[in-house]
Nucleic acid binder design. Structure first.
Lengths: 224, 224
DNA sequence: GTATTACGCTACGCCCCGTAGCGAAAGCGT
DNA sequence: ACGCTTTCGCTACGGGGCGTAGCGTAATAC
């Protein structure tokens, strides 16, 4: 059970909430505590039951909230899980370890730690699967999860260029392409390692990966 | 409706079928045509309805088969979809285009074409999600899908070493590590590009990716 | 021909979905 | 202090998928 006397304020929280009609300034306000409790309960249920075992009725009772309250905020399982998982990704921080290689390894390790959590794994993969036939859902995932994290790559790249480890990229279009490419290679490799092959993202693997990413397969043997 | 007078034989088909008790040499044999019809119907349903919309009853009626027949072969949605998707991956072939870069691009393009099919996308991601809490399922995916395709990397690598494009790898353990790493980088990047960012695997992206993979981010500007 | 197994069909209890309707509670504005 | 408005918890409902059981029939092996 939770207290529903939700502290209002905290503007800009509702990342992807719906029906946030700004004209509703009268009447009983929605409980922000209920939002938080529902999202936390969703992550709990993902850990214990996985995607297919997660039921909205179960989440509601876990959160100490009526099922109708949950349905007033989220349209269904997909939207709910996207928001619940998106909160996890906000913990990622751009590392500053002194060299490009170390920064890359830092991002990889952070991302791997995130994906080692069952709620992130089952939730993320499931909504990606659902987004195959739901373009709006895919866009929601991209905006509230993926695009929010590309700053990690941009920050690391800018620092490396300041240090002289990377040549400056004069073409802004090319720079954007490179950021997207690198983000995809890092995220994709970690996802595959963690979820598909199921082998650990240990120091050895991170080292091998970073070496190939920075100096390439051909010259990887000759790198520092 | 399908003919159920299944032609027997075709040994070794049942990749991951269950209860294939070899002692069952008597009685009416199982219809191989039913197997094929069910797997095809599963892929059809994945395209039209996606993972969450797929129901075993629907698959059965689509395949012209009783629901009980389906349950005699597969324990549930997960196992069924793994087998249905695994068949798609058998179409991948090791390319031989004359250079390492061209071979990499060939594998990437084949893999991207495969993941552009909705049945592969929704099916694969969904079972990966489910495998988070089901170790046996994850192993089944790894064996019947992933591991079967690592020969693509091994073949390309061997050819590149014959051509002198890559240094020989004397350490067999290191070689195995490199194969796994490269496979993960290729598959992961394509998955991310296709499913997460939703942007196309076009010639430009494949070229950029191959350049970074072979010559690294640092020296990518100076490669051939 | 007989034993054995698979097949199609029907029916069942169980659970979850998503919505509707109700009275009560909690702020907002005066 | 007092209505107004909106949200809250609760209950109930039809609809549909799940997975199983039981039956009579069909197709093989011996």
């Amino acid at each position: 059970m939770i207290s529903l006397t939700g502290a209002r304020g905290e503007g800009g929280y509702g990342r992807a909430m719906q029906s946030r009609t700004p004209a509703s300034r009268t009447g009983r306000p929605r409980s922000a505590a209920a939002d938080a409790a529902i999202l936390a309960a969703t992550r709990e249920a993902l850990v214990e039951l996985g995607w297919s075992g997660l039921t909205l009725g179960g989440v509601a009772s876990r959160a100490g909230v009526a099922k109708t309250t949950l349905y007033r905020r989220w349209a269904g399982k997909n939207e709910l899980v996207v928001d619940a998982v998106a909160e996890l990704f906000d913990a990622l921080e751009p590392p500053d370890r002194g060299s490009l290689a170390a920064d890359v390894e830092g991002v990889v390790l952070q991302f791997a730690a995130l994906l080692s959590r069952p709620e992130a794994r089952s939730g993320l993969m499931a909504v990606l699967s659902e987004s195959t036939l739901d373009e709006a859902l895919r866009e929601r995932i991209r905006v509230s999860i993926v695009e929010r994290q590309e700053h990690l790559v941009r920050a690391g790249r800018a620092r490396a260029q300041d240090r002289g480890e990377l040549p400056p990229e004069p073409d802004p279009d090319g720079a954007a392409r490179t950021v997207g490419l690198l983000f995809g290679m890092v995220a994709g490799a970690v996802v595959h390692r963690t979820l598909v092959s199921g082998r650990p993202v240990d120091e050895e693997w991170v080292h091998d990966f970073t070496r190939v990413l920075l100096w390439g397969l051909v010259t990887a043997g000759t790198g520092p």
